[in-house]
Write a protein that binds this DNA or RNA. Structure first.
Length: 493
RNA sequence: GGCGAUGUACCCAAGUGGCCAAAGGGGCGGGUUUGCAAAACCCGUAUUCACCGGUUCGAAUCCGGUCGUCGCCUCCA
């Protein structure tokens, strides 16, 4: 398993602190609003990391936090006339729902800032004691000049930071780069009692405190969006390593690239956001997952509706192949795989080879810094071979032995990528329902028209049958006549 | 100004020294199949990897330069 680390700036082997056990912390969300599909990319990236590690047999302790105490939350709560923690609780529930719909596995722990205040206060106290932090008027600041390695993650040097250029420098700071560990509460703000007076944690300290609580002073992987490298992660390293004296804090730093709309990143401050829930109302979660996983997690991800449609089309084809596998499985046993290989038919040999080599090649792609695009290519190759084979009705009757191993390939992709794990019927049903809903049509309504056409066909009244089909086409319904009957589905565009 | 990415076909995208006269998906064109369709499958669609120069027996992949785009340096996944 090789992973690119932003800290070393190279791909390095995963060497866990404890054999067979990966400890991973990922920066979660600041919950003051619904999450958008850019956030979804970050969450999905580390979901796939988690799934891959589990598949490889690691024990994984995966911690992802909810930041529920923060300036923006307070500001929003004041706007709403709502208690900050009530507001954040509401959005945590919404986030949980969105991520569940996206098919994300639950992390081992999901700590909240509000439930880790004592740990934070202890850490701030330790930093003061060790001479890395100082109190000023109820605030506590980290003194960046006391940490010689400051800047090692982001590559920034203190002298280069143009502090004060965009934000006024607080005169209480000893160095413009010093950052708040603890903020004195303004009257009527949420506050906790501390040795420095009532206040709340600064932005970065919570991740240090929560990761240490669940993972210890040093752990294996720390993840988050690329925009967090500076200042968030840089500061997290400084306060953690200075607070415990243990280094390195995290051994591998992973950062996912941004999702972009056109050329610019999606961001709440820019206002070009699309909510997770709105997309998931319109398309199945796997479509979004496929779109994301087709690009490497570290690069930018250009989002567009066209690409989302492309993904649905590709998944339709994938589930067409899976349907064949399901049919073969239902038909029971046939000749053994080895026997199939002796068959001279090229179609069989090819599928057998692909199926047999699938798991090793798939996992090799994932081992290479999570090359999901390469893994998906293998899935596409398998799908094409399966479909080609499925077109040959004579061959299909002979090769039931293929069914179980082919099904295992889909199951593997389902476990690791969250793609291809559904039954074909469940997939088609999802696409149908969402389109039907969008069009305000009912399934029964469509089915009646399909049945009427079927009757016309049975009487070889081609003119009537075609007229009905044209009508259905206008509704966005595509018909597929097969040997076992007529199936239909909704057009995606 | 500093730091960091990135530029591969109509679109998306993998590949970072020889297996590349460059995967895979979408699109488009042609074909098989079909009552006609749809789906599936087959064939085609980059002698070329932003541009210029260099290293090498050999480069999309390494080095130098130029141009373009994006991100961070303030809150941000």
């Amino acid at each position: 398993m090789r992973i690119y680390s932003s800290l070393s700036r190279e791909v390095e082997p995963l060497r866990t602190l404890e054999p067979g056990h990966v400890r991973m912390y990922v920066c979660g969300m600041t919950v003051y609003d619904y999450c958008h599909i850019g956030h979804a990319r970050a969450m999905l990236t580390f979901d796939v990391v988690y799934r891959t590690l589990l598949e490889k047999g690691y024990k994984v302790t995966y911690v992802r936090n909810h930041t529920d105490v923060d300036d923006k939350i307070i500001a929003r709560a004041i706007e709403n006339g709502e208690e900050p923690l009530v507001l954040s609780e509401r959005f945590i529930a919404a986030l949980d729902e969105d991520l569940a719909r996206l098919g994300l596995l639950l992390p081992s722990e999901q700590p909240k800032v509000s439930e880790n205040i004592p740990q934070i206060i202890d850490l701030v106290g330790a930093l003061i004691e060790r001479g890395h932090a100082y109190a000023a008027d109820g605030d506590v600041y980290f003194a960046v000049e006391t940490y010689e390695a400051y800047g090692k993650l982001s590559g920034k040097r203190l002298a280069d930071l143009r502090a004060g250029e965009r934000v006024d420098v607080d005169s209480r700071k000893r160095h413009p780069g010093d950052f708040a560990l603890w903020k004195a509460a303004k009257p009527s703000e949420v506050a906790w009692q501390s040795p420095w007076g009532p206040g709340r944690p600064g932005w970065h300290i919570e991740c240090s405190a929560m990761s240490m609580r669940y993972l210890g002073p040093g752990f294996d992987i720390h993840g988050g969006g690329i925009d967090l490298i500076f200042p968030h992660h840089e500061n997290e390293i400084a306060q953690s390593e200075c607070g415990t004296g243990h280094h390195p804090y995290a051994r591998i730093w992973m950062h996912n690239g941004h999702l972009t709309m056109g050329e610019t990143k999606m961001s709440k401050s820019i206002g070009n956001v699309v909510r997770i829930r709105d997309i998931l109302d319109a398309v199945p979660a796997e479509a979004l997952r496929l779109l994301y996983l087709e690009s490497h997690y570290r690069g930018p991800l250009p989002y567009s509706n066209d690409r989302l449609t492309d993904a649905i089309v590709a998944l339709d084809r994938l589930y067409h192949a899976k349907e064949l596998v399901e049919e073969l499985e239902a038909q029971g046993s046939g000749p053994a795989l080895a026997e199939l290989l002796r068959d001279q038919k090229a179609e069989i040999g090819e599928v057998v080879e692909l199926v047999r080599g699938f798991e090793a090649r798939f996992m090799a792609a994932m081992d290479d810094d999570f090359n999901t695009a390469a893994a998906i290519t293998l899935l596409h190759e398998l799908v094409r071979a399966l479909n080609r084979y499925g077109n040959n009705k004579k061959l299909v009757k002979k090769a039931h032995a293929l069914a179980a191993p082919a099904a295992r390939c889909f199951a593997l992709a389902g476990r690791v990528l969250g793609l291809g794990g559904l039954s074909s019927e469940a997939w088609y049903q999802q696409v149908r329902q969402r389109r039907l809903l969008a069009l305000g049509k009912s399934e029964a309504e469509v089915q009646a028209l399909v049945d009427a056409r079927l009757a016309a066909r049975a009487g070889k009244d081609w003119a009537a049958a075609d007229a009905l089909r044209v009508g259905l086409d206008a509704l966005g319904v595509v018909l597929m006549d097969g040997p076992t009957g007529t199936r239909w589905r909704m057009k995606v565009d």
